[in-house]
Design a protein around this nucleic acid. Sequence first.
DNA 1: TTTATAGTTTTAAATTTATCAAACAATGAG
DNA 2: CTCATTGTTTGATAAATTTAAAACTATAAA
Lengths: 97, 97
Amino acid sequence: MDIKQSTDATAFKQRIFFALSEPGRYTIVRMLYHVGHEMGCNELNQHVEIDKSTMSYHLRTLREIGMITTRTQGRQKFVTLNTDKIEAVFPGLLERL
Amino acid sequence: MDIKQSTDATAFKQRIFFALSEPGRYTIVRMLYHVGHEMGCNELNQHVEIDKSTMSYHLRTLREIGMITTRTQGRQKFVTLNTDKIEAVFPGLLERL
DNA sequence: TTTATAGTTTTAAATTTATCAAACAATGAG
DNA sequence: CTCATTGTTTGATAAATTTAAAACTATAAA
């Protein structure tokens, strides 16, 4: 029984937990997963009701952790959930959110 | 596709994430799971190396969330991971920690 | 070019969380 | 009873996190 594990892997897992411990980010991730495709930031804003700068902050947090990817088109940004990456470490987690 | 869900269920899930976002608590939960049976607080202290009052604080947090249960025997306390309860909301999560 | 829109960054303040020393219970041992 | 042990609670501080206003960047539209 091996108690220790790679620091990197652990760090990623813990940051996923950190991300999901905040209600706003939890809702964002949950919505992205259930919608099943990328969403525009404005679309997210309509559903979540967070100040735009706070939203930007949370999205940056999720991006830095590696849970989402953003794409710019014109002056809009689209957010994609990195489902595979999350599933790789915690299979079945997203559908339970 | 239902985006909303019970507040209670969501709260429990988020508190699990909160609990596991802290390295000390993450380690405690991970160890309890892998050991597979209850552990004495002192036994935990030997493995985790946290100040005893901080350990007590983290264990109280985990207890209040409902992730562990404690039993007193003499002047020792034994900690049990509420595996079933956690598995019920996030099956397979514990073994991936 | 000018104006409006979409989103980011900065900054400051508020809130939450983690840490540890010290005082405190409660139990067992001598 | 007295002392040592195990763990909790309190209180004070430090550190991290969240929030939102304001200034800013970049692009589209008029």
